[in-house]
């Protein structure tokens, strides 16, 4: 993916969440956002996902600016996949129907084709025996894997994951991280917000450290974890890697 932010800022009421941020990366497969809570990671991810509009500045993904006009914006969102911390599956639909929905409703797929694609994808995520279950019948790890399948089913140009393991216990976290690892080896481009530092280090091509509404430091995981330059990155890493 190529991603460019130019003077992007976002505020909620009085609260400046992202302040005039500019940065560009080219041809990275996996971009990982780390940093303290309230630092603007999730907001930045939602800005790139087209779910929030910046107050000012522009964002370009793979050479195209995020459109302003409503229909074009919707098409832009349809070209991405988003996974949320709280899974956000549709509770009235089975696992399979959750995965089918983007195909049939948004991407004009026939019922049969969607069924086939969704079934194959769930099978691959080791959810074959759970296809007909509703979300409340699944474990947290299973739910998040269904959510990842739903976000991937239409082959998005970029997958955005917002703290996908924060609501999971360590074992389920492992299940979900395995899946993300697999996606990386298959060449799916993704942007990930996470607190799992070990995983961030392993999976990232590029890491951005966000704090106080700005990108304080960016670079390869080796540099950022081994030789952090900014004092706020150093303090943060010291704290989170202490135990």
């Amino acid at each position: 993916m190529d991603l460019l932010l130019h003077q992007v800022s976002k505020r909620f009421g009085q609260n400046q969440v992202i302040g005039a941020t500019s940065i560009a990366v080219e041809e990275v497969r996996s971009l990982v956002l780390i940093g303290p809570s309230g630092g603007g990671k999730s907001t930045l991810l939602r800005l790139v996902a087209g779910l929030l509009r910046p107050e000012s500045g522009k964002i370009e993904l793979n050479g195209g600016a995020i459109p302003d006009e409503a229909d074009a914006r919707r098409r832009y969102r349809a070209s991405l996949g988003v996974v949320f911390q709280a899974f956000n599956l549709f509770p009235h639909l089975s696992a399979r129907d959750n995965v089918k929905l983007p195909l049939t409703v948004v991407h004009g797929c026939s019922e049969d084709d969607a069924h086939e694609i969704a079934t194959a994808l769930l099978e691959r995520f080791r959810l074959g025996s759970h296809e007909d279950k509703r979300p409340y019948e699944l474990s947290g790890g299973q739910r998040q894997r269904v959510a990842i399948a739903r976000a991937l089913v239409h082959r998005p140009q970029l997958l955005l994951l917002d703290e996908p393991t924060s609501a999971l216990d360590p074992e389920m976290t492992g299940e979900v991280l395995d899946v993300i690892q697999e996606l990386k080896s298959e060449g799916v481009d993704f942007m990930l917000v996470t607190h799992e530092m070990g995983f961030a280090r392993e999976v990232a091509d590029e890491i951005w450290f966000l704090a106080e509404g700005g990108i304080k430091e960016s670079g390869s995981p080796e540099t950022l974890f081994n030789r952090p330059q900014s004092p706020s990155t150093q303090r943060f890493l010291e704290r989170v890697l202490k135990y």
Binding site: V82, F90, V106
Partner: peptide, 11 residues
């Protein structure tokens, strides 16, 4: 959150 995930799908 239901609205947000539906919008994220492009609906």
């Amino acid at each position: 959150s239901q609205w947000e995930s539906a919008r994220a799908i492009g609906m």
